[in-house]
């Protein structure tokens, strides 16, 4: 789901995954996942892809005739070695 910045309230039960930098968009787009879901997903690399479709829920892309689609692959051993001990940032730390 993609919402206007500030539309969706994140909190201590959400994990900040990173910033997406997108051409022609001035500010980076923050990507979040819920903490329990993060536990099941954290070993996978995520690609946010775009496919033709009707969107979902209140996500912003729907009226444009597209839908964001998450594609996943396993992290390589090298990637995981870097990530395994990285701190997990939650919405509780969001300023």
């Amino acid at each position: 789901m993609c919402y206007l910045a500030g539309e969706f309230r994140v909190g201590g039960s959400d994990v900040f995954l990173g910033n997406l930098v997108v051409d022609q968009i001035a500010e980076p787009i923050k990507v979040w996942i819920s903490l329990p879901q993060f536990e099941y997903w954290k070993h996978t690399h995520l690609t946010i892809d775009l496919v033709p479709g009707r969107g979902a829920g209140f996500s912003l892309e729907a009226p444009e005739g597209f839908r964001f689609l998450i594609r996943s692959r396993l992290f390589t051993d090298e990637e995981w070695a870097l990530l395994e001990n990285s701190p997990v940032l939650t919405g509780a730390y969001e300023g």
């Binding site: 996978t44 496919v51 033709p52 479709g53 009707r54 969107g55 979902a56 839908r67 689609l69 998450i70 594609r71 996943s72 692959r73 396993l74």
Partner: peptide
């Protein structure tokens, strides 16, 4: 029901195999 739903299902087939 829709193309995007079909694509979503296929993306899970990929991750299922990868895991």
């Amino acid at each position: 029901a829709s193309n995007d739903q079909l694509q979503k299902i296929l993306s899970y087939i990929d991750i299922g195999k990868a895991e």
